[in-house]
């Protein structure tokens, strides 16, 4: 044993020293680094889990957004169609109202025209009567009796009526 250098005291001291070294190395160096490595692995694991969760949430959100977008498109389409229908209805109603108003105006214009025609015819008749009276007066001045005067007046009126008989005013 001596030739190999084995010394029991040294052996025991070195054994104890090495055991102490293991304890101290674990407590102050290897242990903290191993724990830190474990913590990092755990943190990385959590981060990866979180990333996957975020990815899933993102996909869900994308799907929801797509759904909302499609819904919005459908609603916009519906609103647009409603607006178009309403617009067409308004146009139709306006056209109808315009037609009614135009008809009313035409009717009024026609009534006014008829009134004017009647008045003109009346005035014409009055003028013709006046002319007849004037003619009669002149005739009377030319010595005709009363009966002749009346006959002449009637004839004159008849002639006047015969000249104007082709016009609608002649029926009034």
């Amino acid at each position: 044993m001596g030739e190999l250098g084995i010394n029991v005291t040294n052996l025991i001291v070195q054994l104890v020293a090495f055991a102490l070294f293991i304890y101290l190395f674990w407590k102050f160096a290897l242990g903290p680094i191993t724990n830190m490595k474990d913590q990092r692995e755990e943190r990385i694991g959590q981060s990866l889990d979180r990333a996957q969760e975020i990815e899933r949430e993102l996909q869900n959100t994308r799907a929801q957004n797509e759904e909302i977008l499609n819904e919005s498109r459908r609603e916009a389409q519906t609103i647009l169609q409603s607006a178009r229908d309403l617009s067409e209805q308004n146009i139709a109603r306006s056209r109808e109202q315009a037609q009614v108003q135009a008809d009313e105006m035409i009717e009024k214009a026609r009534l006014a025209l008829n009134a004017e025609v009647r008045q003109a015819r009346s005035e014409l008749r009055q003028e013709v009567a006046d002319l007849a009276v004037l003619a009669a007066t002149k005739i009377v001045r030319a010595n005709i009796d009363r009966e002749d005067q009346s006959r002449l007046i009637d004839e004159a009126l008849a002639e006047a009526g015969g000249r104007n008989g082709s016009t609608p005013a002649g029926n009034a």
Partner: peptide
Amino acid sequence: LILGAWIARRATL
């Protein structure tokens, strides 16, 4: 021990 403890003390995540 000194080097290991020094590294472990300064170690961060």
